[in-house]
Design a protein around this nucleic acid. Sequence first.
DNA 1: AACATGTTCAACCGCTGTCAG
DNA 2: TCTGACAGCGGTTGAACATGT
Length: 251
Amino acid sequence: MVRAPCFDKNGIKKGAWSEDEDNKLRAYIERYGHPNWRELPKLAGLSRCGKSCRLRWMNYLRPNVRHGNFTKEEEDVITRVHNKLGNKWSKMAALLPGRSDNEIKNHWHTHLKNRASKDQTVLKTEQSGSLEPRVANPKGCPLIETSLNTQQEVEILLAVLSSDHLTSSSSASESSPCSLSVSDYAVPSDVTPQTYDTAGNLWIEPLLLDDGSFISSCDNMFSSLGLADDLISQASLQDYTIDDDMLLWSS
DNA sequence: AACATGTTCAACCGCTGTCAG
DNA sequence: TCTGACAGCGGTTGAACATGT
């Protein structure tokens, strides 16, 4: 299921990697690292281009890379992130240790895409005729947009809490405010992706930042939002607005 | 058994973002 | 500010394998 090896006009080999090539690449990187992919193949004695070496290393040879079936949890992460961000395979890979962006992309196209489109159809069918905002849907995983501070206007994506923790303020101002209470549960010190709290009812997705990094703990999350500890411990965070499918919030 | 068609996934390709000079 | 080199990303390809006729 791989491309047959061949050589281009410059003598650069293409196609499937042999075991010998893998061994050379692995041995070289383990010894010297990969400060310069372009130079690496020459130094490692490989007739490959730097890109090909990088791809081979990142997808198959680097330590801890995992292959084989995706778990239900992994598929859930992929589906949710795809719903929010689209084809951001590298961001998904960052959330799934040991999985490469290429593998996630392949898995999406071969297994999850059709399933997701079916789900969308069902969701639209269920939603038709209803004026309920998506935040009311417990599994709707609403997006929350915010900014780190007023200067930066850095939008971060939150896909934070199940809407069990989001309650509409019924008095309904025109902007349809919601409150998000963080006082009802203990904030775990190390919330990893796909984590439930001890009560089993808090689900937190890691927070994806514009720079591609993500926040994987509550402490990290709240500090990044500029929330003081005492506020975290006691407050209901007010002044969200619902805009279309999103919760909007400016710090 | 032979062929056609569909599926899977490793690898390639082109583009974009970043950074140093 | 511009330019070139480089790394990384995401779309696409194509060959092996699986399944159907």
